[in-house]
Each structure stands twice: as structure tokens, then as C-alpha cells.
Amino acid sequence: MGDFRAFVVTLLALDAVIFVVGSFLAPPDPFLQLLLVGPALLLAPAVSWWLVYRDGFVRVQALFEPDDE
């Protein structure tokens, strides 16, 4: 998969997670949901860029791998 395609897939996945988590954590008022979910959606492209283009996936995976020693 190309880098741009991986970026778009990662961005869409993060957006979906933000909407689901935001709907559970925020009160049912649409204005408050927008205030809580809006900044997270604006931050999602930066996180996606870090994960795809700056080897963020490799760094996150290294955190969860057990040491062989």
C-alpha cells in the first residue's frame, strides 16, 4: 500500500474512532459534542501523518513487543 493510501486509511480510521468515543464520552447535547470532537478531528491529520510518514506505527508496535532477553 502506498504512503498516501495508508495515510488516508489511517485518517479515516482515526476519525471513526473519534466519533465513536466522542459519542460515548460526551453528553447528548450536539453543541458540546462538537466542542469535544471538533478539536480531536482537527488533530487527527497530524497524528495520521506521524503514524504513516514518521514511522509511528513501528514505534507503537515496539512498545508492545516483549523483550527477547
Results as ranks from 00 to 15, higher is better:
M1S: 15
M1D: 06
G2F: 06
G2C: 05
F4V: 15
R5N: 11
R5E: 13
R5P: 08
A6D: 12
A6H: 04
F7V: 06
F7Y: 10
T10C: 10
L11A: 08
L12E: 04
L12S: 09
L12I: 11
L12W: 08
A13P: 07
A13M: 12
L14H: 03
L14S: 06
D15R: 05
D15C: 13
D15I: 14
D15F: 13
A16C: 14
A16R: 07
A16T: 07
V17W: 09
F19M: 15
V20A: 13
V20W: 13
V20M: 07
V20Y: 09
V20E: 03
V21T: 15
V21K: 14
G22D: 04
G22V: 03
S23P: 08
S23Q: 10
F24D: 04
F24E: 12
L25C: 08
L25M: 14
L25N: 08
L25F: 13
L25G: 09
A26K: 00
A26V: 02
A26F: 06
A26L: 03
A26H: 03
A26E: 02
P27I: 14
P27T: 12
P27A: 12
P27F: 06
P28R: 07
P28A: 05
D29I: 03
L32M: 08
L32Q: 11
L32I: 12
Q33Y: 09
Q33T: 01
L35P: 01
L35H: 05
L36K: 08
L36N: 15
V37W: 00
V37S: 00
V37D: 04
G38I: 06
G38T: 02
G38P: 10
P39I: 01
A40Y: 09
A40K: 10
A40C: 12
A40M: 15
L41M: 12
L42T: 00
L43E: 10
A44M: 01
P45E: 05
P45M: 02
A46D: 03
V47G: 01
V47I: 15
V47T: 06
V47S: 01
S48L: 03
W49D: 03
W49H: 05
W49C: 01
W50L: 11
W50K: 05
W50Y: 14
W50M: 13
L51E: 00
V52E: 01
Y53F: 11
Y53D: 03
R54T: 02
D55H: 09
D55V: 01
G56D: 10
F57H: 03
F57Q: 04
V58H: 01
R59F: 10
R59E: 09
V60R: 02
V60A: 07
Q61K: 06
Q61G: 11
Q61A: 14
A62N: 06
A62E: 09
A62T: 00
A62H: 00
L63T: 03
F64H: 01
E65A: 07
E65H: 00
E65T: 04
E65I: 00
P66M: 00
P66V: 01
D67F: 02
D67T: 08
E69H: 14
E69C: 00
